[in-house]
Amino acid sequence: MTFFRVIWKLNLKLYMIIFLSLLALGKMIQSGFLPALPHLLVAVGVSALLDAVIHYRKKRKLSFPLSAVVTGLLVGSILTPDERLWVVALAAAVAISSKHIIRIKGRHIFNPAVSGLLVASLFFSAPLVWWSSGNTWAVLIFGLIIAARFKRFHLLLAYAIPFALLMSWYALKNNYPVWPHIMFLNFYFLVFMVVEPKTSPLRIKVRTIYGVITAGLTFLFFHILPEYDASILSLAAANLAVPTLNYRGKRRAIRQQ
């Protein structure tokens, strides 16, 4: 079946675009297209346009900004649907700008959506509500497809297992119900943001460590900075550690040779 072979061979960005759009569409069919749709369109429009312009200025050629569409979909799907439109646009613009400005050795440091959402959240008190993440089964199925297709199971587990263990310990220690606290695990964040290849480490072993670090940081921020979104803060902090992790991983690999 050529059709399925073609689908299977799609790149990660196209998978993300299809899955993120399906989740947003599903939620909008369920809850109404307003006010979410205009926000989503503004986020995607600003990201795509800005990325295309920057790309054109750098390379003097036009290309369709697939990764910017992913960024826009993430920004629009995580910010609250009643956010001010200019904040949505600004978050999208910051996301794309950070991708082109904050770089080390040709790779951007921060997951672009994370930087945009951080600015919106820290400076404009924008609530991050993850409005299209509610369909856990769909997110899980998409996550499994992405993990199977792009060999990311180790990263998903490296985040999920420590996070579940830490939350269980926290719930038991405080006499809270355990399972609902384990389900604080944000699958949407895990499937669509933690696995981002450009801002996660290059080697499998190092990537596993990165997953564990991100999980630990999410738990830590959940405690010390509860007024901000722990997932987004933890990914930003973990992204900062990636150049060092890559460097140490490379040195160790050379030594082992």
Partner: peptide, 27 residues
């Protein structure tokens, strides 16, 4: 099929207990 079913059938807790609640903030 499962995806469409889940998406269409899933209701918010408020819908289930019959309370009036908004689904998307602005509405």
């Amino acid at each position: 099929t499962v995806l469409i079913f889940i998406t269409r059938a899933q209701k918010t807790p408020a819908e289930m207990d019959g309370e009036h609640r908004h689904q998307m903030h602005g509405q």
